Structures are given as structure tokens and as C-alpha cells.
Simulated scan of single mutants.
Amino acid sequence: MFETFDSFQKAFYDLRMVGFSRYDLSVLGNDHALQEKFGSAYLSAKDMEDDPHVPRAAFVSEEGIGELEGVIIGGAFYIPSYIAMAATAAAGVTATATAAAVAIVGLPAAAIGVLLARRVHQHHKDYYADQIAKGGILLWVRVSDKKREKLAVDILKGHSGKDVHVHDWSI
């Protein structure tokens, strides 16, 4: 359990650097998955950390969110712009008119893309802020042997992981 996103992310990256697969690492599932499983009951991180049936999800890095934002903004600009360009080019319009059509269609679409990308980024931040408010960000690590177990525990504790312990169950 981590009290800050920064310490959590550093532990995640260090685990990846020493060879843990992203499939061996999981975080708490989203609110929808938790509500399906537990209803509207308030559960703290401490309540959920030892439950093997708690919904889990893959970690999405800040870089991954940045790439998604780029795709949203770029796609929002590119697709309408391409359609406008193709339509004006097919009509035999001049290059200046085609550029104007692309600007008229593409720039507002890109602005909408920026707003959508900001929403994605804020949702990502809120997800982890909510976990911190409920006691901390949970990170589960699947290990295959005692050597990897010790390595994972050392990394988690080295990045201020709280209540780091081992379970004999696996998911």
C-alpha cells in the first residue's frame, strides 16, 4: 500500500526493471468493478488488501495516459480534417480552399480532442487520489519463488510501501 502516487509509480517501474512482467502486477479495480462486487459499502485499502476476490486492474502509467491523450487529440484533428481534405480535393477545389476547409473543420475538432484528453487525464488522477483518500494505493505482485518474493518485498519497502506482506494465495 502506497501513500503517494510517486512512490507507487517508482516501485512499479523498479519491479519492471528487475524483470517482473506487467501481468504479475495489479492494482485495485475501478469504482464500477468494486460496486459490482461489494455494493455501496465503503471499503478502505486495509479492508481490501487481503481479499483475493477484490477486483483488480492493470496499472496505466502517466506515459501511457500521455500517449492516449495524443491519440485522442490527433485523431480528433486528423479524421475530420482528412474528410474535409478529401471532399474538397474530389470537388477540384484549389489548395488554398482545401487548407481553409481543413482548418475550419480540424481546429474545432482538435479543441474538442484536447477537452476529451484533459478529461481522461483528470480521471486517471482522480482514480489514484481516491485510493489515497481511502488509505493508499494497493499494488499486488505475483511471485514465482522465494527469491522473487524477497526481491519484490525489498523493492516495495524501499519505496515506502506500507504493510508489505506475502499471501499464500495466487490469482
Rank of each mutant, 00 (worst) to 15 (best):
M1A: 12
E3Q: 15
Q9R: 15
A11W: 02
F12A: 06
F12Q: 04
Y13V: 07
D14Y: 08
L15M: 02
R16Y: 06
R16E: 13
R16W: 05
S21Q: 13
S21I: 08
R22T: 13
D24H: 13
L25I: 09
V27L: 11
L28K: 02
G29N: 02
H32Y: 14
H32E: 06
Q35Y: 06
E36Y: 09
E36F: 09
G39S: 02
S40A: 05
Y42M: 09
L43H: 07
L43K: 07
S44R: 12
D47Q: 07
D47K: 05
M48N: 00
M48E: 01
D50V: 12
D51V: 14
P52I: 11
H53I: 07
H53P: 00
R56L: 05
R56H: 07
A58K: 13
S61P: 05
E63Y: 09
I65S: 01
I65K: 01
G66M: 07
G66T: 06
E69Q: 14
G70A: 06
V71M: 02
G75Y: 04
I83W: 09
A84V: 07
A84M: 08
T98I: 15
T98K: 11
T98F: 11
A103V: 14
P108L: 05
A110C: 10
I112R: 10
I112M: 15
G113Y: 01
L116V: 10
A117W: 00
R119E: 12
V120G: 03
H123Y: 13
H124K: 05
H124E: 06
D126V: 13
I132S: 03
A133D: 10
K134W: 01
G135K: 03
V143C: 12
V143T: 14
D145G: 14
D145F: 12
D145H: 15
E149Y: 06
D154N: 11
I155P: 00
L156E: 00
L156D: 01
G158T: 00
G161E: 00
K162M: 10
D163W: 08
V164P: 02
V166S: 13
H167F: 05
D168K: 08
S170A: 13
